[in-house]
Design a protein around this nucleic acid. Structure first.
Lengths: 338, 338
DNA sequence: AACGTTACTGGTAACGTTTCCATGCTAATA
DNA sequence: TATTAGCATGGAAACGTTACCAGTAACGTT
């Protein structure tokens, strides 16, 4: 009992194949009566159109690519799930590709698109500073940057973005730390080579220090790579270099939690000895011990908006959009006044 | 500058289309010289074969479906990433579908398969107790159950599985708790309706109690749904019902961490007042405070094996396999002798 | 010298759709 | 009544590949 194809259905329904095709694709020019009848036959025989054939003919698929930078970050895991759900609801399916090599983001994306005949591409995280308009246009499909920083000089009409103001958010976080009396504030950020959110969060940290007349010290600065492990190691190095720290700002919750382990291992207490500030507000933050003071990113909203934009561009030819979400400082137990 | 197709390449290279096709598909019957030349042309013109067309012709795709039950569990997030990586390496791409409705697992899988012309399906977690041979065979593609319990009466030749011995693992965990003196041990498990790993872990808990001559108490039993939140709530209820508990076994780390929050909120200490045992050994566990004693599942190995089996069935027509991985009790700081 | 064998290679019919074009029909207009 | 317009429909040519079949050349075998 091989699979039925559109021709079989047409024969059974006593109509032409084009009519069946029109019914499937919800074209308006089919008589209601025929339409119903065809639909019945389709239902009864459990016919499912062959996606490959459709995609071939249309020279496009109903697939949307999601390129993810960070591998083990629950922040992205959460986003992906929400995006996938919304996309699926709109009839698209997500093809996810983890661990895109940063050095050739666009090349990778390009090949990915060509090979899969993707309808659009969503990039989560990553570093797109050097991304040129030419490269974006070469993709020829809607391109959305989400939860990352956008290339400044790029033409905003050719891509969408859903982001937060990383610098401001980090500024607020560190400003708060200063306000409650901290003057020796360490930071666990990301490396120079990664001109992404980390750079801007670091910038915010610097500006806050500056506002409060605090001089920046190099030994208060360490880098990690968005994992527990690297956060832990960075903190270890920090603790090695100085004993002055009364607070530490980690630019991601994951790294903050890694850092906490190092702090505990040194026999220090959070927040009594060192206040700890995270960034992201992943689920875990509220359940960590002590509960983690952090910068809340509206993950769900960001995810929904990202999917929304993609769908509106694809289905309604809407133009590209750029939305910036607000963050909020969530005060929990890991930071206390000095 | 439209995209080139195989015919264009053939013309440019001065060979027949079938030769180009053979080169692309790595058939051995092409002269090394021609082969190289064709490859050069392909490279030079940046030709990428159209996936839809290939899939259409082959009446199959190179897509493998991954159906995931638990939505926000980092355990699965980790697995998915590893599986995707390995699959990609073997030339397959993963299409992920989260949040499959449990009541109609197979129907969903079936439609998913038909629509996407999937080559195989991997199910992560979920409840397949009622899954019949007939339903599996209806799928007609390799089917792998990973990190779940397998239907007992099913014909093992028609599907693969990569699992752990949940009952034994839980038994060992609770046996250990008893060994170090605990006799009032609570459990946070999953509901009756979910005849999945939870059921077996509960069974292990019961057997361990039994071995030590401890009577099971209903008020020591609560259920959650693999989230921080439900773990937290379950623990709250437990604490409401009894004050006898000296230890709690949560059947997932996520729930254990949720439970910890409830314990802390009641002003109790871990492990001084209550010992806490988790299950899974997700990354968080080692970074939690106190570090979480838990049952280690070899995620990476499970993921690799799962992908391996799929690839070996697809590429080499190997038969179905059933592998059971060992777990290990990881003693950390959250459990102490009474 | 005739033959079979081996190693390559090219032509072409599918695969299951969608879409353009053509056609027949009905209703509206002149 | 003749003409047009619009609606519903069917036929068939693509879309870009793969795989079967056939064909050629080179070579060794009888």
């Amino acid at each position: 009992m091989k699979n039925l194809n559109i021709r079989d259905i047409a024969k059974i329904a006593g109509v032409g194949v084009s009519t069946v095709s029109r019914v499937i694709n919800q074209h308006s020019d089919v008589k209601e009566e025929t339409r119903k009848h065809v639909l019945e036959v389709i239902e009864q025989y459990n016919y499912i159109p062959n996606n490959s054939a459709r995609n071939l003919k249309r020279t496009e698929s109903n697939h949307i690519g999601i390129l993810v930078k960070g591998m083990y970050n629950p922040f992205f895991a959460r986003m992906i799930q929400s995006i996938e759900k919304k996309l699926a609801h709109a009839g698209y399916s997500a093809i996810i590709h983890y661990n895109i090599d940063n050095n050739k983001d666009v090349d990778a994306a390009y090949e990915f698109i060509m090979e899969k005949k993707l309808m659009g591409v969503i990039c989560l995280g990553g570093d797109f500073d050097r991304l040129s308009d030419l490269e974006i246009e070469r993709l020829r499909v809607p391109f959305i940057l989400s939860s990352t920083e956008i290339p400044e000089k790029a033409d905003k009409n050719i891509f969408s973005s859903v982001i937060i103001d990383n610098e401001k958010a980090a500024f607020n976080a560190v400003d708060y730390l200063c306000d409650i009396g901290h003057r020796s504030i360490g930071i666990i950020s990301t490396g120079e080579d990664d001109k992404s959110v980390g750079t801007y969060r670091t910038e915010g940290y610097l500006k806050a220090l500056n506002k409060h007349g605090i001089e920046k010290k190099d030994e208060f600065f360490e880098v990690g790579a968005y994992t527990f492990e690297t956060g832990y190691e960075a903190m270890l190095r920090l603790l090695e270099k100085t004993t002055e720290l009364t607070a530490v700002f980690a630019i991601s919750d994951i790294m903050a939690i890694g850092a906490a382990k190092a702090i505990f291992e040194k026999g220090l207490k959070i927040p009594e000895d060192i206040s700890l500030m995270g960034f992201d507000d992943i689920d875990y933050a509220a359940y960590f011990n002590p509960t983690l003071t952090t910068v809340h990113q509206p993950v769900e909203e960001i995810a929904m908006m990202t999917a929304d934009i993609m769908i509106s561009i694809l289905d309604e030819q809407k133009p590209h959009r750029h939305v910036v979400f607000d963050t909020a400082l969530i005060q929990r137990a890991s930071c206390i006044p000095l």
